[in-house]
Amino acid sequence: MKSSLGGRINHIAAWLILAILIIPSLVAFPVSITAKTYLSLPWEGVSLQHFQHLLTSPEWISSFGQSLLIAIVASALSTLLGTLAAIGLWRLSGRFIEAIRAFLLLPLMVPPIISAMAFYRWWVPLGLIDSYLGIILAHAILAIPMVVITVSAALANFDLRLEQASRSLGASLPTTLRRVILPAIRPGILAGAVFAFILSWDEIVVTLFISKFDVFTLPRRLWNGMRENTDPTVAAAAVVLICTTLVFLVGFAILSRKRGEEAA
């Protein structure tokens, strides 16, 4: 089967498609080191001037810091709330539970533009427009579904009887949570936290609506840069954005592999 002509063609076609999924995004890497001052491949010389510009520009530096801060806090908040909710849903039963689970997945299902409209209109009277708190809350809400999904997946493999044993032996709910449940589902929580971080780090549509001047995240500055000019600094910023995402994904993969080996 594998050596058949059809199978080989299928295999080659699949790799071609996978290449198209990944290679265009990598174009930012060569473009970011071009010696020219417009978007181009570095045929006529390599230069780090665009990275230098990125690292010496107060605007880009400030955006980088803001994005990092927002993503860390939003990820922590959504991980906390999402994990607790997933554990609760796992131990509760009743006909409303599936409805509540679907309810908590809403921020993932509703198109981002509609979330943006809703936050925009609601944040104005609350005074949250263009504030850290406003963006952190919005990003945390958008990331809760990711955490609920990953933690629920981890809980599905967790033996319910351990929790019951702990409770029936007299441990309180907080003790059971801390000493029995949380350690067992740590990989799922970690996955949720990483995905929540990336989600906030990359988020653009909602941010476009609820930020103005004071808060100006990295994707926001990238968006403006892309629409205004063809300065390769934007390519350098895109490289930073991709690399941060990759660092978190690879770090997560290494951590979970190590844990898998320990368990085995």
Binding site: P24, S25, L26, V27, A28, W201, D202, I204, P219, L222, W223, M226, V234, A235, A238, L241, I242, T245
Partner: peptide, 8 residues
């Protein structure tokens, strides 16, 4: 991110 991919 969708932004980086559109930029690419």
């Amino acid at each position: 991110s969708v932004l980086v991919r559109s930029f690419a």
